[in-house]
């Protein structure tokens, strides 16, 4: 008799837990396919030659792309220099801080 009760419990558990996971996912975790951006902000100190050099040597961007990004930072106040996973975005932000650029990371607007 006592054995009859257990399957009910375990079934209930199996149905409830995934729901809870789903709820947690939606509230506190980011879906893995939502991209993140790394932004570089303008300041009146960093030299154009320096910023171009960082974009070329660190990201491996060619001269045209690096200079276009540098000019976007300069004229528009900021530029998105990288889009990808959160982990990569954090790593690039940290590297750009080592270079002395004013970089931030954020979730891309969907």
């Amino acid at each position: 008799m006592s054995n009859q009760y257990q399957p009910v419990l375990s079934t209930a558990g199996a149905e409830t837990l995934p729901d809870l996971d789903h709820l947690l996912d939606a509230d506190t975790f980011t879906a893995p396919d939502v991209p993140w951006h790394v932004l570089v902000w303008n300041d009146p100190v960093n030299l154009m030659s320096y910023v171009s050099y960082v974009f070329r040597s660190y990201f491996g961007y060619d001269r045209a792309k690096a200079e276009k990004l540098m000019m976007t930072v300069h004229t528009e106040g900021k530029a998105t220099v990288f889009t990808g996973s959160k982990e990569e975005a954090e790593r690039h932000t940290s590297a750009l801080h080592t270079w002395g650029l004013w970089a931030t990371f954020e979730r891309a607007e969907s």
Binding site: T93, T104, F105, E106
Partner: peptide, 10 residues
């Protein structure tokens, strides 16, 4: 604060 900047608006 400029050399060790805030990395996110969150």
């Amino acid at each position: 604060a400029r050399m060790l900047p805030v990395a996110s608006n969150d």
